Structures are given as C-alpha cells and as structure tokens.
Computed example of a mutant assay.
Amino acid sequence: MKRKLTSLWLAGCVAVAGCSKKEEPAVPEDSPAQPSRPPQGTIPREGEAAANPPVHVVVPADGGTATGQAQPAPGDANGSGTAQAGTIGSNGSGTAQAGGAGSGTAQAGTTGNGTSEETPPAPPPATAADLPPENPKHREWTAGNIELKRRPSLPVTLRSVRAGQHADYDRVVFEFDGEQLPGYQLEYVDKPIVQCGSGDETPVAGQGWLQVRLTPARGHDDKGQATVAQREMKPKLPVIQELERICDFEAEVTWVLGNKSPNKYRVMELKGPTRLVVDVQH
C-alpha cells in the first residue's frame, strides 16, 4: 500500500514539473550568429552605459550604412563640397583650406603666375601731372625764388656743368641724359654753405650765393662714379666767380653759384640736348 502511494506521488510531481516548463521559441536556421563578445576594438562601456547592452552594427560589403545608401564624403573628386583634408589645388587660383580640387582661395603656396613676393615692383610711369611744362615766367629776370616740381619715374643723370660769358649776362648750363629735366628750385642763400652729406662748411667766393637744387637727379652713374668730374669751378666771369657742388645724395643734386653780388637771374629749359640754363645779369 505504501509503495502504491509513493508511485502516485512521484507521478504527480513529474506531471506538475512538466506543466511549469516553458518551451523556447524556434530559431531559424538562416539567422546570423549573435556575437558572444563585443567586436575587436570596441571601447568598454563604463558607468550607466555598462548597464545597457552594446549594439553591434553590421556594415554591408557594398560600403553603405545599415539604414541605406553610402553618403559621399565632402571634398571628393568633383570638388563640390568643402574639403576637410588634403592638398591645395595645383593651379593655385583660389584658397583651398584643405584637400579636394582646390576650387576655393589658396591660403598657402605660390600664386598661379609664379610671381615672387620678394620681387620689387617696377616704378610707375610718370604722368602729365608729374611732368609739368616749363613756366614762361621763369624766363623773366628776378632776384626772388624760382621753383618747378617734377617727379620723373627715375632720377635724371647730370652729365656736365659749364659756364660762359655773354654780352649782358653770365651763363651756367646743366646738361642731362635723356629727354626729361628734373624739378628745380633756385634761391639766394646766406652763409654758411655746407656739404649735405658731411655737414662741413664750404667756402664759396662772392657776395651773393645762388643755390640751384635739382631733384630727382643724380651726379653719378650706376657704379657710383661721378658723371661731372669737377666739383669746384672758378670761371673768372664778370659776375659768377665760383661754382661749387655741395650735394649729390638721395636723388638730390645741388650747386651754388658764387656771384659778385646778388644780381637778378633767369631760368630757361632747352632741348637737344636736354639742358637747364641759368643766366645772371651783369
């Protein structure tokens, strides 16, 4: 009797255990195997993120994303986007901050025409405003100041200085290279007469010192050799007793006419060759 009750009790336990067991859903045979661990190179999750399971995205072999077609990277071969990295375009026409076809502005590299930044610019050509004509009033006798400003592209080279006597006046001729005269300023000055470079006082004969300042001009060639050999002349004329060059520096040439007295003078411009003439009355 006891064995029968024991058998019935065991059968009931088996039946109860079988009823409480749940069946696992069937897994399709073509389903991809789930990874047992994160892919290689995955950064471990820390803090609150460790409580959430990592999501592993499978990238298709055609280069797209898991949600659709692959997106083209900016700055690609067609140069339509903004390049984030790369080299500047070879034409150098614009600025490429980075990479791509260089359709923007170039911040680095040489310019497209290959011009060096160190090349000094050529002097601008002189205009009519820079080269005014002779003032006819300067041919009138005066004891005051005479001035005419000119700005040629380059300093004009003085080639010779000579003096001679005429019936009513003594004449000094300043001859230049080319067809253009420099600007000039004439005035009687007081002593001391000084050299512009050293500041040394220079004695000049006479009692009236007519200063002739020429600018932009030079009295030397490209090698630094003086183009007027004599820097001091004593022509022994009725009025002009001495001529002294006191400056040839920074595009300025200055001569002083040592006159017997501060007589009236006039200035004329002559061509063929290019000359500036100064006459001093007897």
Rank of each mutant, 00 (worst) to 15 (best):
F174Q: 02
G144D: 08
Q207L: 13
R162V: 11
S153L: 00
T119W: 10
Q230G: 11
E179F: 05
T110K: 07
N135W: 02
D170F: 07
A205R: 15
T110N: 08
F176T: 09
G208V: 01
T157C: 05
E134W: 07
V228H: 04
S160V: 13
V228R: 03
R150V: 01
R162W: 06
V156Y: 00
C196E: 11
A129K: 14
V204R: 06
P125F: 04
P124K: 15
Q230P: 11
Q230R: 11
G183A: 01
G208H: 00
E140Y: 06
E187Q: 13
V173A: 08
H138I: 00
G199R: 07
A143T: 13
L186I: 09
V189F: 02
P203F: 03
S160G: 13
S116A: 11
N113G: 14
I193Q: 06
Y184C: 01
R150T: 04
P203Q: 13
Y184R: 01
E187M: 13
Q211P: 09
G178C: 08
P133V: 04
F174C: 11
E117I: 04
G144T: 05
R171K: 09
G114L: 06
A122D: 14
E201A: 14
A163G: 06
T110Q: 07
G208S: 05
E201K: 13
D168Q: 14
L181F: 04
F176M: 06
L158G: 05
P124H: 13
H220I: 05
N135Q: 12
Q165H: 06
P123L: 07
N113Y: 01
G219R: 03
E187R: 15
G164F: 08
Y188I: 10
E118S: 13
R213N: 14
N145W: 07
T157Y: 12
G144L: 05
G164S: 10
E134Y: 11
P120G: 04
Y169I: 08
G164P: 10
W141N: 09
A163R: 03
E117M: 09
G224W: 08
N113I: 00
S116Y: 00
G224Q: 04
D168R: 10
D221I: 06
Y188G: 05
D130T: 04
H138V: 03
H166G: 11
L214T: 01
R150I: 00
L154A: 11
P120M: 04
V173P: 10
G109D: 01
R171N: 09
K137M: 05
F174W: 02
Y169C: 08
Q195K: 14
H220L: 04
V161L: 08
G112L: 15
V228T: 15
P121K: 13
N145P: 10
Q207N: 15
T127L: 04
K191M: 14
P203H: 12
E201P: 14
P136S: 01
G114M: 03
V212R: 00
D170H: 02
T227Y: 02
D130N: 08
G197T: 10
H166A: 14
G164R: 09
G109S: 11
E140S: 10
E140D: 08
A143V: 13
P125Y: 00
